[in-house]
Amino acid sequence: MSDPEGAGRREALKRVAVTLRAGDVGFALAGGYAGWALGGPEPDNDVDFVVAEADADRAASVLGEAGLDVRQPPEDWLFKVYTDGAMVDVLFRLAGETVDDELLGRAVEQEVLSVSMPVVDATDLVIGKLAALNEHACDLSKVLPTARALREKIDWPRAEAATAWNDIAVACLFLLRRLQVVPEA
C-alpha cells in the first residue's frame, strides 16, 4: 500500500467524505490531512476522519454498503476503510475521549480537494496530537510542524488546559513556547 506521492490517499479522502455525507453521517476530517487542509504540511501516512461514537456502526455500514472495504481492527476506538490503494482510519475516540457532537460542531466547513467537508478545528486537532503523546509514542515531529503552521488558528489556553494532565504534552508546549510558536501567557 505504498503511495509515496499521496494520490491514492487523496482519492480515498474524497471518496470517504462524499460517502459519509451522502449517508447523512456527521463527520470531520481529522489528523494530518486536517492539518494539511488548514495550512500545514501534507502527511505521508493514512487519512483520518472522526465520527461521533454513537454513529460509528452506522458510518461503517454506510461505507460498506457503498462498496468500500471496511475492517474492524483489534483496537476498540476506530475502524479502517481501504479504498484507492490507501487506508483511512475512522475514529470515534481520540486519546481516550469520546468523539461527540460538540467536537463535530466546532469543525469548519471548507473545500478540500474540490470537495466540501467539515475539518476539525485547529485547536481540537492540536489537542488530539498533544493528548496522544506518551512514553511509548513521544515523537514530537507529529506535533511541531502542524503547531507551527497553524499557530495563529489555535486557542493555546484551551489546548494547554485540555492537555494539562499529560506531562509529555506539557513538555511539548514548553518547547513550543521556547520556539515562539506558542505565545507567552
Results as ranks from 00 to 15, higher is better:
Asn134Ala: 07
Ala137Gln: 13
Ala185Trp: 08
Gly67Gln: 11
Cys138Ile: 00
Ala185Arg: 15
Thr83Val: 15
Ala185Val: 09
Leu63Tyr: 01
Val90Trp: 01
Glu109Pro: 08
Gly128Ser: 04
Leu140Met: 05
Leu103Val: 09
Phe174Gly: 11
Ala185Ser: 11
Thr98Lys: 15
Glu97Gln: 15
Val112Cys: 08
Pro145Asp: 02
Pro183Asp: 05
Phe79Ile: 06
Asp57Thr: 14
Thr163Gly: 09
Pro74Gln: 05
Gly85Lys: 11
Glu102His: 06
Gln180Phe: 13
Arg177Leu: 01
Val115Ala: 12
Val62Tyr: 06
Glu109His: 12
Ala107Leu: 03
Val90Met: 03
Val119His: 05
Lys142Arg: 15
Ala159Trp: 13
Met87Ile: 09
Trp156Gly: 00
Phe92Gly: 01
Glu75Ile: 04
Phe174Gln: 10
Thr83Phe: 03
Ala59Arg: 02
Glu160Ile: 12
Pro74Asp: 06
Glu109Gly: 10
Arg93Thr: 08
Pro74Gly: 01
Pro145Trp: 10
Asp84Pro: 02
Asn166Gln: 12
Ala164Glu: 15
Asp124Ile: 03
Leu176Gly: 02
Arg106Asn: 07
Glu75Gln: 13
Leu176Ala: 09
Val62Ile: 15
Val126Ile: 15
Thr123Ala: 07
Val143Lys: 02
Arg106His: 14
Trp77Cys: 05
Glu65Ile: 06
Glu109Cys: 00
Leu140Lys: 09
Arg93Pro: 05
Thr146Pro: 04
